[in-house]
């Protein structure tokens, strides 16, 4: 009974959130575009700013730090995606088995996802990756190896390990949920027919997981493109530029170098990259909405 009165009520009740999100989307973005065209130093103030056209983009892109940061961003996002998707499928399959203590095991696996980024980064950096008293150093020395100085020699690998640890639970949880919806009879039939585990995996499990895998990749990408806190509290983008990703470069331009124009230009580049991912995700979710 969708009366006109109901429809009107629907519009009125949806209006505040639509309006707020519209403002939230348009105002900052418009300001970013505007700032990106200005020569604007935070210390000099807005009154001292002047129009400079596309110069900010020119200098931001020409800065060697830009290409390095783009490369770092993709290395970080790509590596974490590979680790979490492969590891997540493995863990999801295990948790879907008929095992003792499935509940507690699941709780242990999901836990890292709830740990705030600043905590996991600092715990890993100090308690585990410290080259002298860290647990990893102790394990290496016990086996007769020289301990690795993670944040000096392999800073990006260290960040990747921390971030992958945070996101593996998410992937595992999604895949486990998807596997549970796999038809039980189909599982049994495959087992009765004596299908070897590999073909069972390749012909039944993997096709069933195609969609969840896409979802995990897209959603993780959106979060991983914005990784900031882990870098902020561990390496500060260094040594040199070794762990400076795009968000961190923008932060550095704006709040450490006070170059609002340059940072805004960098921010817009981040928006473009994120949008490429979000187009695919939105389309996927939209398809699901119809079914």
């Amino acid at each position: 009974m969708a009366t006109s009165e109901t429809r009107l009520a629907g519009r009125i009740l949806a209006a505040p959130s639509i309006l707020l999100l519209l403002i939230w989307m348009i105002v900052p973005l418009a300001l970013t575009v505007y700032f990106s065209l200005l020569h604007y130093n935070l210390l000099d103030g807005y009154a001292q700013s002047s129009f400079t056209g596309v110069n900010n983009f020119y200098y931001f892109i020409k800065d060697p730090a830009f290409l390095t940061s783009i490369w770092n961003t993709f290395v970080l996002v790509g590596s974490v995606l590979v680790i979490t998707v492969l590891g997540g499928i493995g863990m999801g399959l295990l948790l879907d088995q008929d095992i003792w203590g499935q509940g507690p095991a699941r709780i242990m696996v999901i836990a890292p996802f709830f740990v705030m980024a600043t905590v996991s980064a600092l715990i890993w950096k100090n308690l585990f990756m410290n080259p002298i008293s860290g647990l990893f150093a102790w394990v290496s020395t016990s086996f007769g190896f020289t301990p690795i100085d993670w944040f000096t020699d392999y800073p990006m690998v260290a960040i990747i390990i921390i971030v992958a640890w945070q996101w593996l639970p998410f992937a595992a949880l999604i895949f486990m949920t998807a596997l549970q919806s796999l038809d039980g009879e189909q599982k049994d039939a495959a087992q009765m027919d004596g299908a070897p585990p590999i073909s069972y995996f390749a012909y039944i499990v993997l096709p069933h997981l195609a969609r969840p895998i896409t979802v995990v990749i897209l959603i993780e990408s959106i979060f991983l493109l914005g990784i900031f806190a882990e870098i902020f509290v561990t390496t500060g983008g260094g040594p040199g530029l070794a762990t400076t990703n795009l968000p961190f470069l923008v932060y550095r331009e704006a709040l450490l170098k006070y170059d609002v124009g340059g940072a805004a230009a960098g921010g817009l580049i981040a928006v473009v990259i994120a949008n490429i991912v979000s187009i695919f995700l939105t389309r996927l979710v939209g398809k699901n909405l119809e079914s």
């Binding site: 923008v250 921010g267 995700l281």
Partner: peptide, 17 residues
């Protein structure tokens, strides 16, 4: 949904200012 995908980096400057 798409507003959620806006990277915070992109709007850090205007929000800060």
């Amino acid at each position: 949904l798409s507003t959620k995908m806006m990277p915070a980096t992109g709007v850090l400057i205007p929000i800060y200012v």
